[in-house]
Design a protein around this nucleic acid. Sequence first.
DNA 1: TGAAATGTTGGGGCG
DNA 2: ACGCCCCAACATTTC
Length: 470
Amino acid sequence: MEDTCICWFRKDLRLDDNPALVEAAKHKKIIPLFIFDKCLEEYKDIGLASHWWLENSLISLNIGLDKKLNILEGNSLASITKIIKEQNIKYLYWNRCYEPDRIASDTIIKKSIKELDVVVKSFNSSLLWEPWRIKNKSGSFYKVFTPFYKKGCLVSDAPRKPLDKPEKLFFLKLNTENQNYHFKFQNKKYKWSEKFEKIWNTSETSARKNFNNFLNNGASDYNEGRNFPSKNSVSRISPYLHWGQISPFRVWQDAKNKMQGLHKETFLSELGWREFSYHLLYHYPDINKKNLKIQFDKLQWNVNEKLLLKWKKGKTGYPIIDAGMRELWQTGYMHNRLRMITASFLVKNLLIHWKEGEKWFWDCLLDADLASNSASWQWVAGTGSDAAPFFRIFNPITQGQKFDKDAIYIRKYLPEIAKLPNKFIFTPWLTDKTILKEAGINLGVSYPYPIIDYSLSRKRALDAFKKISN
DNA sequence: TGAAATGTTGGGGCG
DNA sequence: ACGCCCCAACATTTC
């Protein structure tokens, strides 16, 4: 077909700062394409929450593309080859992804399609620094965050300026008989995901709106406020970053221009952690499967479905843990402070393998991201590269008292104990029966006793750790 | 981006 | 005034 190209959307579901789209705009017509390819792990094993987000993103993207988005299901190479041959296409563009199997698949696709005498170009739209570019002085990759970020990223080329949406775009929709992707959440109602619709708008416009809202409000208190889950001091843009409704280049630039001092530095370094996770994923492709510190292979993890389930459902008897796990279940999101506290509790106090937690978060988080999720779980567990040491164990009582001292967050997610005064709400099991009664709590019935003794389980974790460390 | 155990210091009460 | 004890506050070490 005369001067028509394919713009293959993947984790860049936006029109703003989209280099592949900018290249595509040089042609007269663009076939916008998305392929749900179950040969790839990210679609085969897609988490439920993430799947909901993806579908809604596709719907909003489709509107931005004048309702011309072609959504296919099947093998990527086969689907693209078919279109290229049927439509006689000469140009194919996409923005890069960094999952190991996606990299392998893209390499094959690029080679095979080029053999059809087609121009194939890939671009960077989701990482500020390509994982293969950042190297230490000995020519190998960084394994510790601070030197990676400060001596690697920050002294390397600054992230490019974000690109504006091309002015003139003409999109083309193929025959509908090819549109064989079946929406899961549109046809059938899922009670669990329905509530997301009230909280989250997945569109590109909302991404920008939410981020600007953060810049104008929470950003001035970010450095301290980010630790307090009841404050509105974090950006909550992670799901948008994952599917690409907002560009990290846009985020980097806006934060640099509008934030100040330590708030800015800390926020930018959090973007740096995202980069570091991808850097680790690139260099340790099985980061979601294997301990990076192999001595942890010897650790005797506790296999206990019952305890695991109570953790998942937020019924551990430790209010701050339960509040975090219920935030996750109810909103598809969890504040970072709570991610650390709840993860520490699973891995160290329950002594359950971090993979179990990683899987649960993968399923429940709207921002589920292979690199960030795996790297962060390994960080908390102490099994990762540049991880928190295993003996760093969060105390769920004092963490609550420090970071939710007025129990605003706890009360929001645990209405059944909301009537307890601040003095007792962190430790219901130590509370006088009359006070419990006044608060309408029948301990063991309306709210559980702790499923594990904190200080004993702490000692058990330290012992287990000592055993493997000699 | 911890917590607990242990060590040290200094002020106040008191004989 | 002095030594002694207690203990809170802070610092250091350990896991």
